[in-house]
Design a protein around this nucleic acid. Structure first.
Length: 596
RNA sequence: GGUCCUAUGGUGUAGGGGUUUAUCACGCCUGCCUGUCACGCAGGAGAUCGCCGGUUCAAAUCCGGCUAGGACCGCCA
C-alpha cells in the first residue's frame, strides 16, 4: 500500500477521501469498543478512530497497539462532531475512521517519552538518539538547519559561487588547535591530520582562479568541548578574490539576509552595524558583544581618582583601569550575598575583587561608599547610573576588567531578564589586533590566523613593531556568540614571510611547514579574502537553543565520546599492526569508557 | 590540568542515621468502559538507593576513594 499523505498533513481538503497513512503510535486512548490512536509522522499528528461501526478487525488490532508501534492505516477522513473538535491540534477538526490497520513493527516501551519538554538526561538522550530525534522539537531544529543550508546553496549559487570540496585527510600544521591525526598505512610513522578548517585549500582555489568559492565543510579540532563547541563542527566556508573587506562583508550580509528570511522568516536590516575590536572591548568587555541590551562598561578612572580608596588608586597608578557597569534597579535585586557570589565567580578571570555601591535617595551606599561621599554626582554621571541602580566596579589590568565586567554584564542581564529573546542582534567586530600574546607559549601568536593581512597603514609596522599591527579581519557576532569570522588574506610572499618571522618561525621552519603554500603566492596570486560561519551555532541560535548538540543529529557528549556507538573505542591488534602503532598507556591513565 | 554540581523502580523525583515493607507522578501490565485527546475507573508488577571501602549496634542517609554525567576556567590560530 502506498502512503497517500503525511499524518500531519491531513486537513479538511481530504474530507470524504480515503487515505493511507504510515507512522508511529503516539498515544492510544482505549474506551472499550471505541479506540483513538494518535498517529505521528514528521509532519505532525492525526487522530485515528477505531470502532465496530467501521471495522471490527481493525478495532481488535487497535486493541493490541502500543506506543511507538509502526503502523499503516487505511481510512476515511471525516469531520469531527461539534463537541469533539480539538482546537489545540492542527488536525483537530478532522479524524480518520480506520477500516484497515497493519502493524509494520512492534516497539519496546521507550526509555523516555517521545514528546517535547522531556527532562531526560543528555546521556540517555544521546544513547537513544534515534528516539530523541523522533521528538518534534528535535526535528524542528534539524529542519531549521536544513533550511539554512538550502538557503546558503541557493544564495551563493545565484552569486556565482562555486561549491568545491577539499580534503579531509590532509597535513598537520603548527599553530591553532590540536589536530586529530590519522595514521598512514602506506607510510609507517606518518600521519594525516583532519582539517581544522579548509583555510589554505580555499586560498589556493583563489590562486586557481575560481574567484568565488564556498563549501559547507566539516572541521575538526581536538580541544575540550563546550555548549557551543564540538570536536567536529560545520562551517559555511567562503572565499572571494578581488574584493575588499567591506565588499566581503556586504556579500555576507546578503547571505545572512537570505538565510534569516528563509530559515526563520526574519527581516534582517542591513547594513549590519560595525564596531572596532577596541570599542567592543571598551564598551562591552567582550570581543563578541551581545547588543540585545545596553548596560555598557564605563570608565570610572576620573570619577574615583583620589577618593582615598587604595585599591582603585594603586591600580590607576600602575596603569590599570577602573571600570563599572550600572545595573538598572539592581540595588534591590542584588543582596550582598549574591554580589559576593559574583565576586567569587569573576576571580576565575583574574579579578581580585568586586567593589560595589548602591545608588539610593540618600546617596551611595555600601562598604566603599565612604570614600566617595563628595563624588556621588560624578560617579553617577560616569556610570550613567540612576537612583535604585547597583554599580559594580572592577579595577585591574585591561583584560581582567574586560573579562570580569563582560561576564557580569551578560550574566546579570540574563538573571534580570533584560534580554529580548525574540531578537537577532548581529554586529560586525572589525579591526582586530593581528597578534595576541600567549602566556602558554611565551610568544605572540596570530589572533586570527597567520594568513591574515595587516591593515595597509600597518605594513611598515609589521617589520619594526609587528605586535602593534591591526588586521583586516572581522567577526560576525549574533546575540553574543561568535557566528563567524574572516579576513583579507596575505597574497604576497614577502608579507607572508614577515608574518612568519613575527611569529618567531625560523626561515627553515616556515619553509618546511608552509613552503608549498608560499610557493603558490609566487605564481600570480590574486588579492582575496573570505569568511567562515559556524553552521551549528547559527542553527542553534535560530532554533532558540543554548547548546549546539540540539541541532546536531549525532553529537559527542561533553567528554567527547558518543554514547550511541560508544566511540571512540579500542581497535584490534591487527589494525594497530597494519598502522605500525603500539599504544603505550601509562598505568594511571583512564583507559575504559562506560560499558566496556 | 583545575573548580563546582549531580547520581534513588523504565523516566522524573521525595526522603539527609532506626517509625521505610523507600515517597509521589508519569509510564508499564491486567480488567471494565462508544467521543477521547494529560481519557476515566479498579487492580497489579517493577529499586539489591552508581561502585568500593570506612565510621556506627544500625548507612539510601555521615566520611573517603572511584566511576559516570553536567556546567565552568584553562584550551579552542
Amino acid at each position: 500500500m502506498k502512503r497517500t499523505t503525511y499524518a500531519g498533513s491531513v486537513d479538511e481538503s481530504y474530507l470524504g477521501k480515503e487515505v493511507v497513512l504510515k507512522g508511529w503510535v503516539q498515544k492510544r486512548r482505549d474506551l472499550g469498543n471505541l479506540i483513538f490512536i494518535d498517529l505521528r509522522d514528521r509532519k505532525g499528528i492525526v487522530q485515528l478512530v477505531f470502532s465496530q461501526e467501521f471495522d471490527a478487525d481493525a478495532l481488535a488490532s487497535a486493541d493490541t497497539l502500543r506506543s511507538e508501534y509502526v503502523i499503516e492505516a487505511v481510512g476515511k477522513v471525516v469531520p469531527r462532531a461539534d463537541g469533539a473538535v480539538n482546537p489545540d491540534m492542527k488536525t483537530g477538526k478532522i479524524e480518520v475512521e480506520v477500516h484497515q490497520v497493519n502493524i509494520l513493527n512492534k516497539a519496546k516501551t521507550p526509555p523516555f517519552y517521545i514528546q517535547d519538554d522531556i527532562n531526560a538526561s543528555d546521556d540517555l538522550r544521546l544513547k537513544y538518539r534515534y528516539l530523541d530525534l523522533r521528538r518534534p522539537e528535535m526535528q524542528r531544529g534539524l529542519l531549521i538547519r536544513n533550511r539554512i543550508t538550502q538557503a546558503v546553496h541557493r544564495y551563493l549559487d545565484s552569486n556565482e559561487f562555486v561549491d568545491i570540496e577539499t580534503p579531509y585527510l590532509t597535513k598537520s600544521t603548527p599553530e591553532g588547535a590540536r589536530d586529530y591525526l590519522v595514521p598512514s598505512r602506506v607510510y609507517p610513522g606518518h600521519f594525516y591530520a583532519l582539517p581544522q578548517s579548509p583555510q589554505l585549500f580555499k586560498q589556493l582555489l583563489m590562486g586557481a582562479g575560481f574567484d568565488r568559492y564556498y563549501q559547507i565543510a566539516r572541521c575538526f579540532r581536538d580541544e575540550d568541548l563546550r555548549g557551543d563547541r564540538q570536536p567536529e563542527f560545520t562551517q559555511i566556508d567562503l572565499e572571494m578574490s578581488f574584493m575588499t573587506a567591506k565588499e566581503i562583508q556586504e556579500m555576507t550580509e546578503g547571505l545572512l539576509k537570505a538565510v534569516m528570511k528563509e530559515a526563520v522568516d526574519f527581516e534582517l536590516k542591513t547594513p549590519i552595524p560595525r564596531i572596532t575590536w577596541n570599542e567592543a572591548m571598551d564598551r562591552f568587555g567582550s570581543d563578541k558583544p551581545d547588543i540585545r541590551f545596553a548596560m555598557e562598561l564605563h570608565d570610572m578612572s576620573e570619577a574615583v581618582k583620589d577618593g582615598g580608596f587604595k585599591v582603585f588608586d594603586s591600580v590607576l597608578e600602575n596603569g590599570g583601569q577602573v571600570k563599572a557597569i550600572a545595573v538598572p534597579e539592581g540595588a534591590k535585586a542584588y543582596s550582598r550575598k549574591q554580589i559576593d557570589a559574583k565576586q567569587d565567580y569573576i576571580k576565575r578571570f583574574g579579578a581580585k575583587g568586586l567593589a560595589w555601591v548602591k545608588v539610593t535617595e540618600d546617596g551611595l551606599q555600601g562598604p566603599i561608599a565612604k570614600f566617595f561621599k563628595d563624588k556621588t554626582g560624578s560617579i553617577k554621571a560616569a556610570a550613567e547610573a540612576h537612583e535604585g541602580d547597583l554599580i559594580l566596579f572592577v579595577a585591574d589590568k585591561r583584560k581582567v576588567v574586560a573579562d570580569s565586567l563582560g561576564y557580569l554584564r551578560t550574566s546579570i542581564a540574563k538573571e534580570m531578564d533584560m534580554i529580548d529573546k525574540s531578537a537577532f542582534a548581529f554586529i560586525w567586530v572589525v579591526d582586530w589586533p593581528l597578534f595576541e600574546y600567549s602566556e602558554d607559549f611565551e610568544r605572540y601568536i596570530a589572533a586570527h590566523h597567520p594568513f591574515t593581512m595587516p591593515n595597509e597603514e600597518d605594513l611598515d609596522l609589521l617589520k619594526t613593531d609587528p605586535h602593534k599591527c591591526h588586521a583586516q579581519s572581522y567577526d560576525i557576532v549574533l546575540n553574543g556568540y561568535e557566528l563567524g569570522g574572516g579576513s583579507i588574506r596575505i597574497h604576497r610572499r614577502d608579507i607572508q614571510e614577515q608574518m612568519f618571522k613575527a611569529l618567531d618561525f625560523t626561515k627553515e621552519k616556515a619553509e618546511e611547514q608552509f613552503g608549498w603554500f608560499m610557493e603558490a603566492l609566487d605564481y600570480g596570486f590574486p588579492p582575496h579574502g573570505g569568511l567562515a560561519l559556524g553552521l551549528d551555532r547559527f542553527a542553534m541560535l535560530l532554533a532558540g537553543k543554548d547548546n549546539i548538540r540540539e541541532v546536531i543529529a549525532y553529537p559527542k557528549n561533553s567528554k567527547a565520546s558518543e554514547p550511541l556507538t560508544n566511540a571512540p573505542s579500542f581497535v584490534s591488534g591487527k589494525q594497530l599492526d597494519e598502522l605500525f602503532l603500539k599504544p603505550e598507556i601509562p598505568a594511571d591513565a583512564k583507559v575504559n569508557k562506560p560499558e566496556e
